[in-house]
């Protein structure tokens, strides 16, 4: 078998507390391109990994405001400009009656943008993962916790990554190879 390209290094842990301290070590070592894989949300992992607050809320509020403004604009144009009909003796532009739809469009835009930006930022939909190719996905979705160091990180080298993960108390460090036939 030809030697395949190493795309990362995974350390598999059996204890979430060890995972947390490992994540802190990797964070403090200055790694940029790395991730943790756990079968369920581990409390405190965000802080241990030093993750910055998500930009999704800003996308949500911006899209919501745009949606609300568009909703109000649409109803103003339809009810007061394009096809004015006097209803119940009220003004053509009756903002009170337009509030529910403005609100609905605010929510619709905000929800879709939240969903879309979440999918984009978490890279959902990129179906290939070195974890699948190397038969370790089965561990991190069932009963073990993984720290993956990406070879694209500037400090990454096989020896250094292995040493770092072993130093965190990991008994099971494995290299991740690119799939055969791809480089």
């Amino acid at each position: 078998m030809a030697k395949r390209e190493v795309v990362g290094m995974i350390g598999l842990y059996d204890d979430p507390d060890v995972l947390i301290s490992a994540a802190e070590t990797v964070r403090d070592a200055g790694y940029k391109k790395w991730d943790c894989h756990t079968p369920y949300p581990v409390h405190g992992l965000d802080d241990a990994m030093g993750l910055k607050p998500s930009p999704v809320p800003y996308v949500t509020i911006t899209a919501g405001l745009i949606g609300g403004a568009l909703g109000m604009l649409m109803m103003w144009w339809m009810s007061a400009v394009d096809y004015p009909v006097r209803i119940g003796g009220k003004p053509y532009f009756s903002w009170q009656a337009f509030v529910p739809i403005t609100f609905e469009l605010f929510v619709l835009f905000a929800a879709l943008a939240t969903m879309g930006s979440m999918i984009f930022l978490t890279k959902l939909g990129s179906w290939a993962s070195p974890l699948h190719d190397n038969n370790v996905m089965i561990h991190v979705v069932t009963n073990r916790y993984g720290v993956v160091l990406d070879a694209a990180d500037e400090q990454f080298s096989e020896e250094q990554a292995r040493a770092l993960l072993t130093g965190t108390g990991c008994q099971d460090v494995r290299p991740l190879y690119a799939p055969e036939g791809e480089g």
Binding site: G88, Q96, A97, V99
Partner: peptide, 12 residues
Amino acid sequence: AFSQYMLIWYAN
């Protein structure tokens, strides 16, 4: 608060 206001405003 708005629900109460809008329904009363609408029914008039």
